[in-house]
Amino acid sequence: MPDVHYAHIDAESHLELVRKLDIRSTPTTLFLNSAGVEVGRAMGTPKRAQVQAAIAAIH
């Protein structure tokens, strides 16, 4: 999926962002659409099906 971009952000070095986005535990995956709006999130390691469903919902 070439139109999907993945970015890893270290929570501990971005605690301001952690509070702003209300991240409660690591890892948390946020799914953003092309406008940068959050359309879903997965707490803990996301399952493959979870990622596919989230990406399908964005398209």
């Binding site: 501990e12 952690v18 409660r24 690591t26």
Partner: peptide
Amino acid sequence: GCQMYLLILR
């Protein structure tokens, strides 16, 4: 403990 970790840091 892992769940507490980030919350405590926050």
